[in-house]
Design a binder for these strands. Sequence first.
DNA 1: TTAAATGCAAACTATTTGCACGTAA
DNA 2: TTACGTGCAAATAGTTTGCATTTAA
Lengths: 140, 140
Amino acid sequence: MEVNLNTIIAKQRMKEKKLRITPQRHAVYANLLSRQDHPTVDSILADINSDLPIASKASVYSALAVLREVGLVREVLLEEGVTRYDAKIEPHHHFVCHQCGSIDDLEWGVFSNLTMDNLPEGLHGNSYEIIVKGICSCCS
Amino acid sequence: MEVNLNTIIAKQRMKEKKLRITPQRHAVYANLLSRQDHPTVDSILADINSDLPIASKASVYSALAVLREVGLVREVLLEEGVTRYDAKIEPHHHFVCHQCGSIDDLEWGVFSNLTMDNLPEGLHGNSYEIIVKGICSCCS
DNA sequence: TTAAATGCAAACTATTTGCACGTAA
DNA sequence: TTACGTGCAAATAGTTTGCATTTAA
């Protein structure tokens, strides 16, 4: 269900910009949709090629670049030198466990009391993300 | 004044862990203290060597690692593949202009109305950072 | 004096690029 | 058929590492 709705949106956005939905791009996107762990390029690559080789590393990079361009995927920067990817487009925040390193999504509503009203003169915010660090349920 | 207070703290913390304050480490730390632009390694390197060569790139990396260990410096991750550094230890947030890329510090109090009370069951937050993206005063 | 730090160069890792080949509209 | 995408390998960029030399305490 969820996946189907997402793939419909994906088709629309790709068509709008005249980009092809190739097997490699589909595999990368489907893999991201199926996972909650904000994987790295290598992890995506290993996962989509695990049963039968379908994409090279260059194609995964390329697919991710395209998917980001059309707004279907965003990158998540939480650790130095590690770029992770996320197919969840709804605005949300992240929780990082500094014991085990796991990453959880935090729904937007969790911080609904936040306001941008007090920004210094001259700065106009139009999006924000909160990164919370702490201990997850597995580690506590 | 500010710099002197910081260097006193620095001496204390380094002494505690029996780490030496070498000219290179001092130069890197002083450079970070003097700058508000969250520089990269290359930028720090160029700046401290601009008048007379004092440190190699490896030493800058090493100095930053040590300064981070003792909590005098933190890294700032805002763009893919770019690691920036910050000698401001007080907790604070960041504003990124998506026109010119400039980075401004946001004082903690700007978001004082934020609470961690609604985190999902099992997650225990103990620190957080907010990254706001928008347009800075120069660009608007 | 001497353990710790530097500097250089080589090694590594992540990502990008150029180009010949393949493929979908 | 033709522009677009893939895969490979080489190039690039950022960072780490090993080791001989130097140096701060």
